[in-house]
Amino acid sequence: MTGNRFWRLDRHPEGNADFARFLTLCEEDAVPLAEGEVRIAVEWLSMDAGTRMWMSPRTDGYQPPLPLGAKMVGLVLGRVSESRDSVFPVGTLVRGFGQWAEEAVVVPALAGLEAVDESVSDPRQHFGALGMNAWTAYVGVREVAAVKPGEWLAVSAAAGATGSLACQVGRNLGANVVGIAGGAEKCRWLIEELGVQMAIDYRAEDVEARLATIPGGIHAFFDNVGGPILDAVLPNMAHYGRVAICGMVAGYDSDAPMPGPARFDQILMRRLRVEGFFIPDFLERGAEFLPQLRAWLDAGKLTVRFDETRGIENVLTAYERMLTGKNIGKVVVRL
């Protein structure tokens, strides 16, 4: 194999636009694999907001930043084209953390690499209802936020990949779901397709005022955003409520630390439990979640809307769409 194209991080981005000023599409010839490495012919790339933190020079994130000059890293789905690991023979369909590249080279243990079920009719679901966004939604709603039937669950970035799945997990567990999203189209989709009880357009509505109409307050909040949305939710939480913090996309476009919540006092006043969590915390538990997620998927109780872009040369366009909220559902790039 020759002519592998990949995206290289050359500068730390500023904001969430014009990524072509900071990353370069490069080409290389293949190098021999070292013992234990696997080469993957990438078929799909997953666009995930958390990777924006890896581009930052900040050292206080949940993992060290990528060094400048490195290949950009993200979730990949594809087939093993060459292997020096007997666990992953050539031809195996795999998912794991690789490079934004046509051919990704990984050490399976470091990449969280795993073979995936080829009986799934749409392979994109390994990034969707059966993927890490779904694992995050499942753990965040069921375990961290500990949602119970009849409770009110609010979800921010509710029309995104993880948020839309969190809404459905909450609904499937019997909760009343409030989806907070940007734009009338997203809010219609949340109500008409995902079955949430209330959808709030944060761009056109007073989020705090809408939430204040919920009798008894919100019992659980699945937060992907932080910032002003979190401030709008905290005073509307029920006493002894739970806040599961999954992401802080409101601060990903800046290298400066995000200020603390302006309504921090409500954590004490309402006796709230606040807990942050990330996918790396429970990667080894993926097989535990799959039976329930697959059952919901097969029963039509867990759906994913895919925002698909084609071609590695268009990765940055897809990435910017995801970070700026121009998408609905899961953003993927098909190679």
Rank of each mutant, 00 (worst) to 15 (best):
F289Y: 14
A158F: 03
L68S: 13
G311Y: 11
A299E: 15
W44N: 02
V249R: 08
P291N: 10
L68K: 10
V233W: 04
I229N: 03
R124D: 06
D10K: 15
F289P: 08
G3N: 11
S121V: 14
A134P: 05
G36F: 14
R271C: 04
F221C: 03
A256T: 12
V304D: 01
E43Y: 08
S83E: 07
R263A: 14
I214D: 00
G183R: 04
D18T: 10
G163D: 10
F222H: 09
M55G: 04
A20C: 03
V243L: 06
G69D: 07
P261T: 01
A20F: 02
W54H: 09
R273C: 09
E208S: 15
G112C: 12
R305Q: 12
T317V: 15
F282L: 06
R52H: 03
M1T: 11
A318K: 06
L211H: 10
F97L: 14
E37A: 07
E37H: 07
M269A: 09
D206H: 01
A250H: 07
V94I: 07
E320T: 15
A287E: 14
S46K: 04
H239Q: 13
A181K: 08
F6P: 09
D85I: 10
M258Q: 14
A232K: 02
E43A: 12
M237E: 11
A184H: 10
S86M: 11
I200T: 09
C26M: 14
G128R: 12
I191N: 07
N314I: 11
A212T: 07
G170V: 00
V31S: 13
K301V: 09
F127N: 02
M258A: 14
E82G: 06
F19M: 12
G96V: 13
L283K: 12
E320Q: 15
C26S: 12
I328A: 01
L190P: 07
A299V: 05
L316F: 01
Y252G: 05
T24G: 00
A17H: 15
S254P: 03
L130F: 05
A34K: 15
P259Q: 13
M47T: 10
D231V: 02
L230K: 04
N224Y: 12
R242A: 10
L316R: 03
D10G: 12
L165A: 14
L25S: 05
L335K: 02
D298A: 15
A175D: 01
E275L: 11
G276A: 14
Y138L: 09
L45W: 12
R5Q: 15
K330N: 10
A146D: 14
H12C: 00
A244Y: 00
I267Q: 03
G183Q: 11
V80C: 04
L33H: 05
D29K: 09
G182M: 05
I245E: 11
P291M: 09
V105H: 08
R203P: 00
A175E: 03
T324A: 11
E192A: 14
W54S: 12
E185C: 00
D265I: 13
E313L: 06
R203D: 03
A204S: 13
R39L: 08
G131L: 00
H219G: 14
D117S: 13
L194A: 10
C26P: 01
N16P: 06
E205S: 03
W296Y: 01
G160R: 02
R95Y: 09
R321F: 06
G241A: 06
F277D: 12
D255Q: 11
V225L: 00
T2Y: 05
P149N: 08
P259L: 13
R52F: 02
A166W: 01
V243D: 03
G96C: 13
P291C: 11
